[in-house]
Amino acid sequence: MASLHATARRPPAAGRPRAARLRRHAWSYVFLVPGILLFGGFSLWPLIASWWYAFFDWDGVGTPTDWIGLDNFREVLGSGAFWDAFWHSFAFSFAALVIELPLALVLAILLNNAWLRGRNVYRLALFLPVVTTTAVIGIVFAILLDPIRGVVNTALTDIGLADSPINFLGSTTSALPTLIGIDVWKGFGITLIYWLAALQTIPKDIHEAALIDGANSRQSLRFVVLPMLVPLAIVILLLVFQRSLNTFDLVQATTQGGPNYSTDVVPTYIYRFAFDPFLQAPRYGFACAAGAVFGLMTLLISLMQAPLLRGRYKAGAP
């Protein structure tokens, strides 16, 4: 970009349309500078740099000099704790795709009906968690689910659904499903808005035309509206996948990956190796390698999903 900028300043040589064109756009290049500095410096460069750092044994002091080749990657791929964190991250996305996505679609179809009274109130209620801080809400849930005096356990034992209080976030078996439940609760509103936006792109006439042609409401939904949603559904799926895979706030605020690493996800894993205050010396190189492996895998999976779904859409469309 800098070289383009330099060319732009040069006086236009006669008969050189390219230079003239660059000169004409000189101000536009000046306007690109803040965006490129901010985005290039803090988004693009880190993507490249984290791969570079991954080849060093480095604690962050001075410049990285201790080149160890692929050793960090070997350690990451051979580490059971990393793979556990990796699968936990995927458990969050899996739940988002299998539970949250279809459930939000059902509610979006319901709330998209003009005949439903109070639909704005329902939508508002479901959207409320989205605008609140995940970390704060996570802590509120930790209190609600407390095994000793928490409201949920009090209610469960009072009704008789549980004989003894359930230690939701404190036991290795229930902590991950509990956090996944809270994550679905928190993200539901966004997915709902995505679906509602997608439904609103479908003209009302089409649904009405199907009704006139003798289809009932359900048939129209199944054979007309849903197939038309597929292209946008792919986008929504990717957005939800990306969001759920990067769960950090909720886990860090409530369990910090515990108990016994049973809720550790890749971002908390990376965080621990780089920033944990109890750490003797940060392992930036190793943490970068873990991040790079995770980033590459998610990118591959994201790229895989789109054509797969598009193929299915083509096969399914009449």
Partner: peptide, 10 residues
Amino acid sequence: FIPHSYTIIP
């Protein structure tokens, strides 16, 4: 389409 959470170190 690339997750950003892991680039925090650089």
